[in-house]
Amino acid sequence: MSSRCEVFLEILLAIMLPPLGVFLRNGCCSCEFFICVLLTLLGYIPGIIYAVYAIVVRGAQPDDEYWQPINP
């Protein structure tokens, strides 16, 4: 779990350069990163909106627990 300070700095970086904030949260080969790069190239504001969404909402849900099988 990330601290509030880490999340705040990632959001600040996402406002200045949206893919950088997503990169710090998810890495460079993630789907979120490529979507953020595409949206930033198409328009700066959609890139910022998606970056904040990817950091705050998607970052709070760990993918490992989501993809566990129902019957182990």
Rank of each mutant, 00 (worst) to 15 (best):
L24C: 10
V52R: 04
F33M: 15
I15S: 11
I45D: 01
W67F: 07
N71T: 00
N26D: 08
Q68D: 01
E10T: 12
E10P: 00
R25V: 00
Q68C: 00
L17A: 12
E6D: 12
Y66C: 01
G47P: 05
F23R: 14
L41S: 09
I11D: 04
P19C: 14
P19G: 13
V57C: 03
Y44R: 09
N71G: 00
Y50E: 04
L38N: 09
C36F: 07
Q61S: 04
L20I: 15
W67Q: 04
E65T: 02
L39S: 07
E6M: 09
Y66V: 05
I35G: 02
M16C: 13
L39Y: 09
E65Q: 01
I11P: 01
I55M: 05
V22N: 05
L9C: 10
P72R: 04
L13V: 09
S3D: 07
L24Y: 15
C28S: 09
R25K: 11
A51G: 13
P19S: 11
P72H: 02
A14Y: 06
G47D: 11
M1W: 12
F34R: 12
D63H: 06
S2R: 10
L24I: 11
R4G: 06
P72Y: 01
L38R: 14
N71E: 07
Q61H: 04
I35K: 02
S3L: 04
A51Q: 09
E10L: 14
L12M: 15
L38C: 09
C36M: 12
A51M: 10
A60N: 06
V57N: 01
F33D: 08
F23K: 14
G43V: 09
F33C: 14
F23P: 07
Q61T: 05
V57D: 01
Q68A: 03
C31F: 15
P19Q: 15
G27D: 09
E6W: 06
L20Y: 13
I70P: 01
S30W: 06
A51E: 08
P72A: 00
L39C: 04
V7Q: 06
I48L: 01
